[in-house]
Design a protein around this nucleic acid. Structure first.
Lengths: 208, 208
DNA sequence: TCCTTCCTTCACAGGTCTGTGTAGTCTACC
DNA sequence: GGTAGACTACACAGACCTGTGAAGGAAGGA
């Protein structure tokens, strides 16, 4: 538990960030004005600009804070899981299930990317890194589990993970996460199977 | 080839829709004002409101038109493909490759969903139907190909398809679509293998 | 000739947006 | 007592937002 970014904030700044985080996520970034954020934080606009410099600065802080909280969950889940690749990958998808249960509006990074087309926007780097980080966690788990083509399998797992987020929120399929979880399990088992023999049962074949 | 929605539009309305489509997609819906759209279409704001009623009406028309064009591509590709499930599923992912090459800002429906949180917004129904439609096309192809658990496999294919879109645009991984295409091929082959033929190369084997 | 459709021109209402300038208060700490 | 930091209060700039009202021109069909 390293002292988080949140700890270094002044009380007003922390309230601003909490309110902004909630409003940006629920309503969208462009749809929420700084006046609203300041009012709901019980703070003046002056304070908001003194703390975060600009609306963009606040947006970046919002994404960074969500990123931090989510990574913490993933890291903790990976440490708590049984050491075999199937269990560890499944733990990541369980975090997704928990996270989406409390965050019904999809992935804040994907949503932010939709609203911030400028590739030079500082938030875009955060978004890119978030996806890459998860992919690397998958690859680590698979490599440590002895999977040969860990990078390729990790790529597939990332696709399933992100696909679940989108199909759940935009497509409104309530089973998306559990579908992804099952498919991920099948992919991991197939990749473990192919380490020894190349047969590979189907992704929807018999489970335990 | 049924006469499309576009054909019934007046010349001015068609220009408005073309411009709005381009601007909404490239910059986002909230970020583009009706003044800009009217000006770039060489049309007055009055005409825009006479044709589409409101900005929301124009947004719905924009999404419906993109939906129509994309479905046309998918239907054509499915008809042109060899009749086996692997080829037909691959054809859908080839459409995705073509489409994303010309549409670098991700899925317009996912982006719209990010900007339109209200579940009652008419665009949300379009978005939900679009994802469902693709899933049903996958399920049809698999059922006709004799796959037993066609629905579950179709769900996985949809996850890979949507995941590719997101990882490409938000995650900025240029290989996302081809990764999804390969993974989809492996999933389909595995599901076929578990029905009849036992070919089952690994999930990351050679593709043609 | 009349009527409809499409579109133009232009002003305007009423609001919201991000961001700044100025002045001053309260609290904690040295 | 002095000082620094956090915060309030509030007006304001300048731009942009969606949407409407009133009046009229031009083309094509009945």
């Amino acid at each position: 538990m390293t002292p988080s970014t949140a700890t270094t904030l002044t009380p007003g700044a922390r309230r601003i960030l909490e309110v902004a985080s909630s409003l940006f996520y629920e309503r969208g970034i462009h749809a929420v004005g700084v006046d609203t954020i300041a009012a709901e934080s019980g703070v003046t606009k002056r304070t908001l600009y003194d703390r975060f410099g600009s609306k963009d600065g606040l947006v970046v802080a919002y994404l960074a804070e969500r990123d931090r909280r989510w990574r913490e969950l993933v890291v903790d889940a990976l440490e708590a899981a049984a050491p075999d690749p199937s269990s560890r990958v499944d733990a990541v998808f369980e975090v997704l299930a928990t996270w989406t249960a409390a965050n019904g509006r999809g992935c804040s990074f994907v949503n932010a990317a939709a609203e911030l087309p400028d590739p030079a926007h500082p938030a875009r780097a955060l978004i890119r890194e978030e996806k890459q980080w998860l992919r690397e966690r998958f690859a680590d788990v698979l490599t440590e589990g002895g999977v040969a083509d860990a990078d390729a399998v990790a790529a597939t797992l990332l696709l399933l993970h992100e696909g679940a987020f989108v199909v759940l929120s935009a497509g409104q399929d309530p089973d998306a996460v559990s579908e992804a979880r099952q498919a991920a399990g099948a992919v991991v088992r197939a990749s473990l199977g192919s380490a020894g023999d190349r047969a590979g049962r189907g992704p929807h074949g018999s489970t335990s």
